[in-house]
């Protein structure tokens, strides 16, 4: 399902946080939202999820997000926040099962099919062995996979991931992003994620959206967006950008000389 963001603005506490953002996440592709701290990346993701009131138009599969009932919205969009709240004594299986919430009526309870769906997702993410473990006894990498499992249990065609690699070491970053990419290709998911690491964003995303000061300043393929000029201007960083594998750019920090 394609996500279209047209001239979107968001105010938080009377202060404009997003202005005139336009972008498209095409069906089955990965759009990475990059930009300096405070650029409005997470806010954009929350607006797409329908968690923040916005001006302009956001559509998923052609339908405006703001017109969708919460349960219907949760069946097309799955969201993993930057620092998810993990109830310490909830088990991995119980947590994954929460992803079935949009399919359960208000007074109802999970069906056998819901339980089976959660089990199958845990199996797919190699989490079956941890199913009975309480969330407080997971490592950082396991935690991130469990949050992903909950989002996948939602069986939504669009995955919104806010900084999925925060607080992970290099190996686990790669593991999580490879996993997301595999799921995207296998299931034809549309992925929209914020990523603070520009080189990682360039490696995994099909399209980049560079945000700065609440507006979209550049969009396109990794090679078009990650230019020394744009990165220097918007991140205030000295970088040199080289060619990496498959023609995707690699960003190096350069120390000021002299």
């Amino acid at each position: 399902m394609t996500v279209e963001i047209t001239d979107v603005g968001v105010d938080l506490g009377g202060r404009p946080v997003l202005r005139g953002v336009t972008a498209t996440a095409r069906e089955g592709r990965w759009l990475a939202v990059i930009g300096p701290n405070g650029a409005g990346k997470s806010t954009l993701l929350k607006a797409v999820m329908g968690l923040l009131p916005h001006t302009g138009l956001i559509t998923v599969g052609g339908r405006p997000v703001r017109d969708l009932a919460p349960r219907d919205r949760a069946r097309v969009l799955a969201y993993a926040p930057q620092s998810p709240l993990l109830p310490p004594d909830m088990t991995v299986h119980e947590y994954a099962l929460l992803g079935r919430t949009p399919y359960i009526p208000y007074w109802g309870r999970e069906s056998a099919r819901d339980t089976e769906t959660a089990r199958a997702v845990l199996d797919r993410l190699d989490l079956t062995g941890l199913a009975a473990r309480p969330l407080e006894r997971l490592s950082g990498g396991e935690r991130q996979r469990v949050v992903l499992a909950r989002a996948l249990t939602q069986q939504a065609p669009v995955l919104l991931l806010d900084e999925p690699t925060t607080a992970l070491d290099l190996g686990h970053q790669q593991q999580v992003l490879e996993l997301v990419d595999r799921l995207r290709r296998d299931d034809g998911l549309t992925v929209v994620s914020t990523l603070h690491d520009l080189t990682l964003a360039a490696q995994y995303a099909d399209d980049l959206l560079l945000m700065s000061g609440g507006t979209a300043v550049a969009a396109g393929g990794p090679g078009e967006v990650l230019t020394e000029d744009l990165v220097t201007r918007h991140f205030g960083a000295r970088v040199s950008i080289g060619a990496g594998p498959a023609g995707r750019p690699v960003v190096h920090l350069r120390r000021p000389t002299g």
Partner: peptide, 21 residues
């Protein structure tokens, strides 16, 4: 009768909303 929904709320308001609650 609200036990299940309170379990959903335990992951935070944003996520509960994202789950359609």
């Amino acid at each position: 009768l609200h036990g299940r929904l309170l379990d959903v709320l335990s992951v935070g308001d944003d996520e509960a909303s994202a789950l359609g609650v």
